[in-house]
Design a binder for these strands. Sequence first.
DNA 1: TTATTTTTGGTAATCGATTACATTAATTAA
DNA 2: TTAATTAATGTAATCGATTACCAAAAATAA
Lengths: 340, 340
Amino acid sequence: MKKKTTIYDIAKKLNITAATVSRALNNNPNISDATRELVVSTAEKMNYEQNRLALALKSGKSNNVGVVVPRIDSNFFGSVIHGIEEELNKNGYHVIICQTDGIEAKEVANIEALLNSQVDGILISTSSNHTATFDRIIKKEVPLVFFDRKKTMKNVSSVTINDFDGGYKATKHLIETGCKRIAYLSGDTNIEIFKDRFLGYKQALLDNKIDFNKEYVVQTKSTIEDGRKAVRKLMKSTPPPDAIFSSSDFAALGAIQELKAKNIKIPTDFSVIGFSNEPFTMFMELSISTIDQFPLEMGRMTAKVFLEQVANSENVKIEKKVVLEPELILRKSTRKITSK
Amino acid sequence: MKKKTTIYDIAKKLNITAATVSRALNNNPNISDATRELVVSTAEKMNYEQNRLALALKSGKSNNVGVVVPRIDSNFFGSVIHGIEEELNKNGYHVIICQTDGIEAKEVANIEALLNSQVDGILISTSSNHTATFDRIIKKEVPLVFFDRKKTMKNVSSVTINDFDGGYKATKHLIETGCKRIAYLSGDTNIEIFKDRFLGYKQALLDNKIDFNKEYVVQTKSTIEDGRKAVRKLMKSTPPPDAIFSSSDFAALGAIQELKAKNIKIPTDFSVIGFSNEPFTMFMELSISTIDQFPLEMGRMTAKVFLEQVANSENVKIEKKVVLEPELILRKSTRKITSK
DNA sequence: TTATTTTTGGTAATCGATTACATTAATTAA
DNA sequence: TTAATTAATGTAATCGATTACCAAAAATAA
């Protein structure tokens, strides 16, 4: 096994102590220029590289931050992580990625492992209700920031989008373009973001004096197939809906495919709006109206909130709830608003 | 600052030494059951958690692996990393992600940082020619595995797809469906994968006695806009091409959009095939034929090659060049092969 | 020349866990 | 009962860097 060069090797070679070497390399002012230069050049010659593990152990700072997500190969999480990595890297941190597949046991195990490896913070989009684990993070005083899928906890920061507003805006737009019977393709309402989108949907109906119809709500997973199934089911209602707000772009796509198969004209006779602004929604010939969540921005913001928290570690704990405003993206799957 | 429990705290409380505590927690056989149980239960009570940094420093193994990619928010790299993380996590490793934006300086800086933080391996899809950096990794005997975008180096393993075959298959398919004048949308030919796709394209033409026409090759970036521009340029050739093989799905999409705008019928009068099997190629109303690269499989394989390398560390260095076979995905942007 | 200050560098502890080696206590053999 | 084994634990070094505290040497002041 290759032996790595340490400051002791340099010290021995120059017949000085490791302390001097360390100081020289760190530009400590009370080292003479002659010594400093000698040490630096010798270090170079000997291919010295600092072992940050030793530093981490000594200082208690690993400069690693754990990021926990259900999966990384989705456009949304990929973009969020892009933003996180970009921002943290600038500040000397490295990002350790963990996937949970949305499974609580995996999430808990990953968090345990991250804590053991002394991460300086944990940024998480959670899929679990295992509060004991979060309590443990907090008790250890490891900075914790939720993003997108959060748990509402005292003293814990989070960065989310306003899913209620997203649901409200999407629904309101459908109403403004003349839709009367608006169906909703729901995600798992145990997850806060989906619950909020649903509440936004209901509120928009209420504000516009449209009765909420339970029959128009279909539980779906975020898949094309579930979107198609939902349409098949919805079209049996009497009267059938004339619009769909889907909490997922994938289900929206499936819905559109099925509607086309049934020869229903979009957006003339039926409107569809999705959620997330997945890239494909823009690429379709019949491009899909949707809600943008600014994932890159969310990632950057999450990183910034963490960095602030670290900077403020002396002070009292700060709790910062950042809520990004989602944006309506209008495309061809919904009608234009007709002038009043 | 919260003081964490160490084995010394436990030792002091029980009036024994840290060595005994360590042994008890690690199920060392020559510790009496009584002591073991006492230590374990006390550790539990005191919320003890192992500091893996100390272990890493002592053992020289951090259990972290660095993964370096141009960016993480693309379907391809996201999927590769998904595969890597999944496989490594099972084996007790954590994945540190670094993005380079395809910029050499960032790549070099990230690798330096990873080496400093004592990663047990580096898995990289490179965008650089900075061989000094790779030599340094090798000199330090840190396992190195290239995936997708590799440098050809002695004694270094890699996992790639056969881009030559990919280019060949795509082109051959166009020929078999009756296309005679096949244009090629090239990526940056300084990058090995794009060069190989190009060579595959040329070979397929040669094998089918079709003259290579330089005019039919357009350099593009992997964007929709470049695909559109390419079509505008190509259609001025005389005669214009009757098919496009694009080394990127995004450029293929742009090409299709522009062809449609010119009222050219696809696939009747013009065929288009892309490369990568991006999700959107399947979702389009006019779905796009393309080449699948099996990114998830590539990720898993990359991880496995690394794991083998670690397991074999005693032995001679092993060099393993895994080449995955790409697969032709036929959709609506190309014609069916007519029976002979 | 002696005393004082400033430079410069050395000593040794520390971070938290592991482990080769030594030692004590308990058990078995003679 | 004494010697030889075995079982259970302690001692101290180690991984590599930083740093509070101290000491020697050089420079300056008196």
